[in-house]
Write a protein that binds this DNA or RNA. Sequence first.
DNA 1: GGCCAGGTGGCCA
DNA 2: TGGCCACATGGC
Length: 298
Amino acid sequence: MDKYIDIPVPKIFDFNVNLQFLNRNANECTHEVKDHALIKYVEISSLKSLIKISAPNKSILRLHFLAGDLPQNKEDEKLFIDYVEHLFDLNKDLHAFYKLAEADPLLQKPVIEAYGLRIVQIPDLFEALAWGILGQQINLNFAYQLKREIVEKYGQSITYKGEIYWLFPSAKRIANLTVDKLSKIKMTRRKSEFMIGIAELIASGQLSRETLLSLGSKEVIEKEIVKIRGIGPWTANYLLMRSFGFPDAFPIADVGLHNAIKKQLKLDKKPSIEEILKLSQNWTGYEAYATFYLWYSL
DNA sequence: GGCCAGGTGGCCA
DNA sequence: TGGCCACATGGC
């Protein structure tokens, strides 16, 4: 198969820095970074395809279909293009963010060092929420280990040139598990309950990307999803930022953010919420981008 | 060995 | 509303 589609990218975009972000943990199992390309098994509409994304030059991304289903018509192709644009958050104009960042003591360095970084998205709602729950209150490395166990136990895979590529388990699959079974993986029973509960809501159609997005504003969506057991303000904002692409979502209680601020300003201890509110006064509209660049700076 | 991890729900005043 | 506390495990 050598079918490919070229997708134009905006000016403030650097594929390599985004790849570096995607390559940040060796235990990552839902994509592979190699030979300056991203390889990922994706499910889009009803098509399951192994895709490869590379950047032959600065102004385009090239989407290759390596294995699995191929788009059958222009409509399918459009879905894949939308997916890639969503994945790399290409539809945001970052000029205003860069302008404010260049004058911001906290963001100055990070935007230079990671020029062209986008908030890489987790397009699938269940995957994004499940990852948020996994990441709650444990070190990231361990979170990746748990993710790998769940994916390799309950996810689907495709083999290509001797390598296995995984799809995050569907909500339906996880909804059918018991807490006893899921917590065999070294996860708290609480986390298992949260994850199964959310899987049930999604599998039954009570919770979906479309219905949440139709609520409109980020504030309304946040208010709605924190009603769900296991989703607090941090996870809600994490979802808004990493899956719904709200550039002004702000997981202000995030430990990683606190550590990054401490490091950038060479503080003795982590800043308080009040101090962060002060420091972030000028980020209005781009809190998520500021947070993401600070994470990357760690 | 103790404390902290990309928090949250539940209990108590 | 606001303040603790358990939660399972890994890393330092």
